[in-house]
Amino acid sequence: MHLHEILFWFLSFMAIVCALGVILSRNPVKSVLFLIATFFSISGHYVLMNAQFLAVVNIIVYAGAIMVLFLFVIMLMNLNADAEPQKSRLVQMAAVLSGGALFLVIIAALRTVDLNNKAMITSEGDLGLIHNLGMVLFKEYVLPFELSSVLFLAAMVGAMVIGKKEEVIQNP
């Protein structure tokens, strides 16, 4: 086994175990920490595919910004107690069954699909480096890039309007 394969299996195992930890742990803070570990292993996969720009952005945006936001909200609400009410056993069983059934159905559908079987995902090629991605982003996708700034502005205003304390409306 090459180093590439060992890293692939290790990162895959870590991603799946940590994802299971997200949905199985009772404490929401532990769920957030497991999700951060999942994001780090997905970033490791990006590095293995030589998509280094996305790996760094994934760590900065997801593990750095979004998960800190989740952690702040959980700690502000003081939810880090283990006393979360659980759904009934029947509903949990149905959830696991339907998720597993979806998994099986898509695997059965994809098993015979005519993919390019010789396509090996290697860590060669400089496709995901910042030079190439920047050329594509600022040549072909410059309008969506600018529109995303409007989206962020709208999200920021929306979050502030929703999150501010309601003032008592005085009837005239």
């Binding site: 799946i16 299971l20 949905i23 989740f70 949990q92 149905a94 959830a95 696991v96 998994f103 993919l115």
Partner: peptide, 30 residues
């Protein structure tokens, strides 16, 4: 690595996400 391995890995992660959405009652975990 063949492309199928990545297909199955991301499918597994997606299914785990669906199970979590259906299973948990905490809105933040969903």
């Amino acid at each position: 690595m063949p492309i199928q391995y990545y297909l199955f890995l991301s499918l597994a992660l997606f299914s785990i996400g669906i199970m979590g959405v259906l299973m948990r009652r905490n809105a933040i975990i969903v």
